[in-house]
């Protein structure tokens, strides 16, 4: 196999893993954000948020 194959494969591997990491962090954030919104919509709020509402 040519050197170009090994170079291309290395960059594809590094790129794929980095994109996978970025996607994981992004999807995780989207999921947690939605979960928090659902909880708040159901009336479950943090103590600090409840105190602010009471003011």
């Amino acid at each position: 196999m040519s050197h170009a194959f090994y170079v291309t494969a290395s960059y594809i591997a590094a790129f794929s893993v980095s994109i996978g990491l970025i996607l994981w962090v992004w999807l995780d954030h989207r999921g947690r954000h939605r979960e928090l919104e659902r909880l708040e919509a159901a009336g479950v709020r943090r103590r600090s948020a409840r105190t602010e509402d009471a003011r």
Partner: peptide
């Protein structure tokens, strides 16, 4: 820099995950 960007964002996700766990316990 990619590491530090991902790290602070992953830390943010972890803080949110813990908040959700606490809220669920309270509920």
């Amino acid at each position: 820099l990619l590491f530090f960007t991902l790290h602070i964002l992953a830390m943010r996700n972890e803080i949110l995950r813990r908040r959700i766990a606490v809220l669920r316990r309270h509920a």
